[in-house]
């Protein structure tokens, strides 16, 4: 029961934040991916950096259970799948999480995205044996690995260096890039959509 309450609280917070940062709005996704307006990119980079620094610092302080880490396997299909997801994300303006949130916020086109998504997931379920047989799902570079070796983690590191410290350094790097990146790279430069700061 506790886990269901946590799912409701964290899930609702995630959905609300995705709505408020513009991630569920295809206009902001389109402008970001066409490299015109990077406001949302800065938000995402800052979020990854903030999450990373807090998680690894929390591990070092003994507050965060290292066992909660969940690292996905690396294989060639990750890249191919990433290409497919990227193309569909750019065309539709939605990814799985933002699509369901956009539908909930009242966007009708997002309902079509979800319907297509359910069919796409079913198509993968049907074609999974083919991918499995192709060898493209076989682990590369050790499979479930992190860049550094995180103390106490069940996942191996590619490099021997201490993974939690590397995580904090990379997290700070993401934060730095978020600050350095300009809001606008190209485009019409309409002042109306510039955030007031």
């Amino acid at each position: 029961m506790t886990s269901i309450i946590l799912a409701i609280v964290i899930g609702a917070a995630f959905g609300a934040v995705l709505d408020r940062i513009g991630a569920t709005d295809p206009n902001w996704i389109g402008k970001m991916l066409a490299l015109k307006h990077l406001h949302l990119m800065k938000t995402i980079l800052l979020a990854i950096g903030t999450g990373s620094v807090l998680m690894f610092a929390g591990q070092m302080a003994g507050i965060v259970d290292v066992g909660h880490m969940s690292v996905k396997a690396a294989y060639v299909g990750v890249f191919i799948g990433g290409l497919l997801l990227g193309a569909g994300w750019a065309a539709s303006g939605y990814c799985p999480g933002t699509g369901v949130c956009a539908a909930a916020s009242g966007r009708k086109d997002a309902l079509f995205f979800i319907a297509g998504g359910l069919l796409g997931a079913a198509a993968y379920m049907a074609t999974y044996p083919m991918w499995k047989a192709s060898g493209l799902l076989n682990d590369i570079a050790g499979g479930k690995v992190t860049l550094g070796t995180v103390p106490g983690s069940k996942f191996d590191g590619i490099w021997a260096m201490q993974g939690d410290i590397l995580g904090i350094v990379l997290g700070l790097g993401f934060i730095a890039v978020a600050f350095v990146l300009p809001e606008r790279l190209s485009g019409e430069g309409r002042m109306a959509d510039m955030p007031a700061e």
């Binding site: 299909g77 997801l85 994300w89 990814c95 799985p96 079509f112 297509g116 796409g120």
Partner: peptide, 27 residues
């Protein structure tokens, strides 16, 4: 778009949330 996104996400074993955000955050 939804079809391609979810087909790709399942082939990759995750999406923008699981791979990009959670994954890069964990290095």
């Amino acid at each position: 778009g939804g079809f391609v996104v979810l087909y790709g996400a399942r082939l990759a074993g995750g999406c923008t949330s699981g791979h990009m955000m959670s994954g890069m955050m964990q290095t």
